[in-house]
């Protein structure tokens, strides 16, 4: 995996405005300024495909697990089902800290997993583990 580049196109998916703003704020403090938000897995999946078709694919996806329309795990499964997105780094965010959830996410091809609550250092640490140069 290439090193983390703050200029990469990042998609943040969460049905909660608050958590999207928190993650976006933490990413901005890391120098990221190309961040798109989606409030559910369904619009996120559309945005991922549209961005790819437009030649500006997302290079990193951060998604909540529990969302009312398409869940994060279903979004991850959709992403991993297409050859063009198989290698897109995908960080799952969840409040559900049970080990069984981690196993489900790993089996579905998640790149890393972060449990709420977390601070900017924890998020950066999780991202650093995905983008090992």
């Amino acid at each position: 995996m290439a090193a983390f580049n703050p200029k990469m196109r990042i998609l943040v998916v969460d049905d909660m405005n608050t958590m999207r703003k928190i993650i976006k704020g933490m990413l901005q403090k890391m120098g990221c300024d190309n961040i798109t938000e989606a409030d559910d897995g369904n619009p996120a999946w559309s945005l991922i495909q549209e961005a790819h078709a437009a030649g500006r694919p997302f290079e990193f996806i951060i998604s909540d697990w529990n969302m009312p329309g398409m869940t994060g795990i279903d979004l991850l499964k959709n992403v991993r089902s297409k050859d063009e997105f198989k290698k897109v780094p995908f960080l799952m965010v969840t409040a559900e800290a049970e080990q069984s959830n981690v196993v489900i996410a790993v089996k579905a091809g998640v790149s890393n997993y972060i449990i709420k609550p977390f601070n900017p250092d924890t998020l950066k640490g999780k991202i650093d583990k995905i983008f090992v140069p």
């Binding site: 559900e96 800290a97 049970e98 449990i115 709420k116 609550p117």
Partner: peptide, 13 residues
């Protein structure tokens, strides 16, 4: 709501 969600998710474990 996000606070409630995080609390419930962590307590559940």
């Amino acid at each position: 709501s996000e606070i409630a969600n995080i609390i419930m998710g962590n307590a559940k474990k």
